[in-house]
Design a protein around this nucleic acid. Sequence first.
DNA 1: TCGGGGGCGGAGAGCGCTCTCCGCCCCCGA
DNA 2: TCGGGGGCGGAGAGCGCTCTCCGCCCCCGA
Lengths: 346, 346
Amino acid sequence: MTTDNARLPTLEDVARLAGVSRATVSRVINGIRNVNPELHEVVWNAVNATGYVANRAARSLVTRRTGTIALVVSDSESHDDDPFMSRFFSDPFFGRVVGGLLSALRPAGVQLALQLVGADQARARLVGDLRQGQADGSVVLSLHPGDTLPHLLADAGLPGVVIGRPARPVPLSHVDVANDRGAALAADHLVARGRRRIGMITGPVDVPASVDRVDGFRAAMARHGRSYVPAATGNFTHESGERAMRELLADQPDLDGVFVANDLMAQGALSALHEAGRRVPADVAVVGFDDSSAALAARPQLTTVRQPLEDMAAEAARLLLARVDDPTLDTTSVVFEPMLVLRASS
Amino acid sequence: MTTDNARLPTLEDVARLAGVSRATVSRVINGIRNVNPELHEVVWNAVNATGYVANRAARSLVTRRTGTIALVVSDSESHDDDPFMSRFFSDPFFGRVVGGLLSALRPAGVQLALQLVGADQARARLVGDLRQGQADGSVVLSLHPGDTLPHLLADAGLPGVVIGRPARPVPLSHVDVANDRGAALAADHLVARGRRRIGMITGPVDVPASVDRVDGFRAAMARHGRSYVPAATGNFTHESGERAMRELLADQPDLDGVFVANDLMAQGALSALHEAGRRVPADVAVVGFDDSSAALAARPQLTTVRQPLEDMAAEAARLLLARVDDPTLDTTSVVFEPMLVLRASS
DNA sequence: TCGGGGGCGGAGAGCGCTCTCCGCCCCCGA
DNA sequence: TCGGGGGCGGAGAGCGCTCTCCGCCCCCGA
């Protein structure tokens, strides 16, 4: 507190102490051009002696860089204090993405800022703020298909990378997992386990990741000569998985295997199976998707398709950083391979 | 992309269009002093016409405010890519705190930046960065007792609020839940349910929240005339809860009630009880702590002590904002009341 | 009618950096 | 010995704001 009014050292102070100009200190600190090695040392000594740290605001005023990347969580059309938001934040999904982003951003000395946008006007304001130096670029996490934010960013020429394939094509890079191949792994596994009557619990029909999982699963089952796959639809929540499982059992009482499009629903499905007196995996084998903490918390623990979210987020950060450095870079998309994780439920 | 090189409008542009000086535009935008109402409108029209958004860097260079608050997750002594970190981020705890902070920060137009610190040198660097305008203040989430960061912040005179009571007193405000009273609620409830042989699974012995829960539980049990409470120690993870429950059962085979110091461990305890052939709640009643998503995912769903984390985080943000506005403010601590949430496990 | 006070708006400095431009010096080659 | 080129470091402008200081004008009261 008492030290608060003590003026912090500036470049000027360091320069005076080192006996050189401000420009030279700046060059040394930023590693620009060849500066006489002796001066180099003199300057660093002065920096350490004064405890100098460059002022971010002054630097970014001239460089037009903020050293900040925004993680924008975009929840189409919903209200700001929508319970969905708080549900989302308490979902491990969010934390894994944050952890992955930070792992790539920290070594680059870039800070991560969190942005939520609900209403469309908030989205427009965000774009304005971003253009005016709120952040150098954004990693976008859209919670709903048909979100307009990626398009707004692209139109404004702002660097952005989307996590998960957008519902409509957009001139922005994105990272994703091969949802179709992941679902195929689940299908191959259930068939290999000798299951004959295999069903599926899907996610929302308008979400690309969900659609890809359904398509991938059906295609793989068809390759095994199973053209008919009974299915029930959920919305990726625990409760919806429980309900969908009940529906599926009512329809297909002799079911002996089920692929559930995410772990949370699979956990719900386990409850419904337990309630219906089916043993897992003896009577019904269950395979989830994500390899989230829910898979480990489930009893029995879930066999599931691992989605390397941390790696995906880290890659998104790297793509974004590259684009910030060179805005002429072409957009790309990086698709990660899923992996089947065997546990007790199958 | 093509619009990228188009210079963005500055105060100067708005002033020219409105036919006033830069100072006047600045006054209107920031709502300072009485400006002639007619001019007021002229200026706002010019702002809208140009699409002007104030440049953050320029503004904060002179105001010495960044409009950013840092959420600092401080993991004492651990390495940066410690698995503990990624485990922490995927824990719903983190997301709930973030959601609560954002709910209080957004209305104030303040941005949230994420900072992780592991090694001590990172801690020193962070303090330097913060002093030099990385953020106006920090909300600190210490993952280990004895973390030095709160003290470093206090010594540097930087505004900071700690979530959870620090192990050693520190001249910084903090928010917490009354862990002792929460544990007492659990004790009262188990006794009221007619349980006679009640045990407890505790968290780490050096974490204040854990210690408070143990003390609160023992004190309440003593009030009910139960001076002896068998206990086993865990470390707040699912696995440790499972192991501790097995130990407790081995010690006290006739146990009919157990208080588990967090939901994750309680979920593990349920598995151990199931494995041991005990029915919950018929044979053993189980009460958790936190009311996290694990409580809902558990089967049976957990009776638990609700910790209002979102509210606590929002209050932390408000305390911090107040202190940033007025650094002479006294430090305070706000303690939230816990609440017992009744579900199927008791 | 004249003096004084209050309030509004403009001029201009200054926040702390980076970066361009230029001058000087040194060295090398003819 | 002299000319030219290269490289290092300094001077100074400028990034886009805010804020102090001051002048001017208007109105009111004596």
